[in-house]
Computed example of a mutant assay.
Amino acid sequence: MEKIKPKTITEKTNLHPRNLDRFGYDFEQLIKNCPELQHFVTVNEHHIKTLDFSNPEAVKSLNKALLVTHYDIQDWDIPKNYLCPPIPGRADYIHYIADLLASTNNGIIPEGETVQGLDIGIGANCIYPIIGNSAYGWSFVGTDIDLKAIENCSKIIESNPKLIDAISLQQQTEVRFIFKNIITPEDKFTFTICNPPFHASQQEATKSTLRKINNLEQTKTTKPVLNFGGHNAELWCEGGELGFVTQMIYESAKYPMQCLWFTTLVSKKENLSSLYKTLNKVSAVEVKTIDMAQGQKTSRIVAWTFLSEAQQKAWKF
């Protein structure tokens, strides 16, 4: 019988201090809560339990286990070929948003349903609203252009009664718009959140998927795993990340008083210079860039507001 090393706790210092996965995965507890995960857990050459992260079914099973264990979410699933996000990275975004809100609230993280987030491109997984509601009691509106993704989020919400009053969904019916049709004159959002499509074409997205798989596997492949990485609309759009976020910035300027902080992930550092110029053009009052790092990947959150310091402090959470 292969000897397994006793569990050693290694702190992942690149994760946010409040991230529940900062001290690694407790596979014994995760398997107890989600027995199907057992099929994907192996023992590596150092006799330590691990997972094949190049296998999308393994990653999905790990997500199910984490959602049960940390967030009390049952019956979570996503359709084949849809993005299965790594939960620790998504949780970091939520925790950094909490810190951002605290910066205009006397250092106190605002909690409860009156803090409302707008998730642009919720996908089929509903991850950001799930984590935000569990960690801080926030409520969310989730939008997507993909009806199938919206329908799957609806299933997740209906399977978890505590989410029913916390998350509402809306399909964006006009692909070229982001906030139009979504933000009404009566709406006030505390923040927006977005993981934009990175790539400018299907070909670019496929190349990236292959690169990810080959980095995770010992043997090289030229055939993409169809459900590793996500659905077309989640991975690419015309203009890529830069085009998408630039459009978002221009649209945000039409709703200056209706959101405290607009935010988005920006994966490609080389896009920052152009985005800062656009933010200057639309007269953003304050712009913040928050660095994040998960594993070998570095990303950042760009946040902007049109509210003065006095208006920020007067915002009612």
Rank of each mutant, 00 (worst) to 15 (best):
M1E: 08
K5R: 14
K5N: 06
K12Y: 12
H16T: 02
N19H: 03
D21E: 14
R22M: 05
Y25Q: 01
E28M: 12
I31Q: 13
K32D: 11
C34L: 04
E36M: 11
V41E: 06
N44Q: 11
T50H: 10
T50L: 12
E57W: 14
A58Y: 10
V59C: 05
K60V: 00
L67C: 06
T69E: 04
D72Q: 14
Q74Y: 07
Q74I: 07
W76V: 06
P79S: 05
N81C: 14
P85N: 09
P88G: 07
R90D: 03
Y93H: 12
H95K: 10
N106T: 07
G107L: 09
P110S: 01
V115G: 09
Q116I: 15
G117K: 10
D119W: 15
D119P: 06
D119C: 01
G121A: 05
I122C: 11
G123Q: 01
G123F: 04
P129F: 02
I130P: 01
N133C: 00
N133I: 02
A135T: 12
G137I: 01
G142R: 07
I145A: 07
I145E: 05
I145P: 02
D146A: 01
I150D: 04
I150Y: 13
S154P: 01
E158R: 14
P161D: 05
L163E: 07
L163A: 04
I164A: 15
D165T: 15
I167D: 04
Q171V: 10
Q171R: 11
Q172G: 13
Q172E: 04
Q172D: 00
E174A: 10
K180M: 06
I183K: 09
I183A: 02
T184A: 10
T184I: 03
P185F: 14
D187N: 14
K188W: 14
K188I: 09
F189D: 02
I193H: 02
C194K: 02
F198M: 05
A200M: 07
A205Y: 14
L210R: 08
L210S: 03
R211M: 15
R211I: 06
E217K: 15
L226G: 04
L226T: 00
F228T: 01
G229C: 06
G230F: 05
E234V: 03
W236H: 11
E238C: 04
V245L: 10
T246R: 04
I249K: 03
K254Y: 11
C259R: 13
F262E: 00
T263E: 04
S267D: 02
K268P: 00
S273L: 15
L275D: 00
T278I: 14
E286R: 15
Q296M: 08
Q296D: 09
K297R: 04
S299Y: 08
W304N: 01
E309R: 13
E309K: 13
A310H: 09
A310I: 12
K313R: 07
A314E: 08
W315M: 09
W315H: 13
K316W: 05
K316T: 11
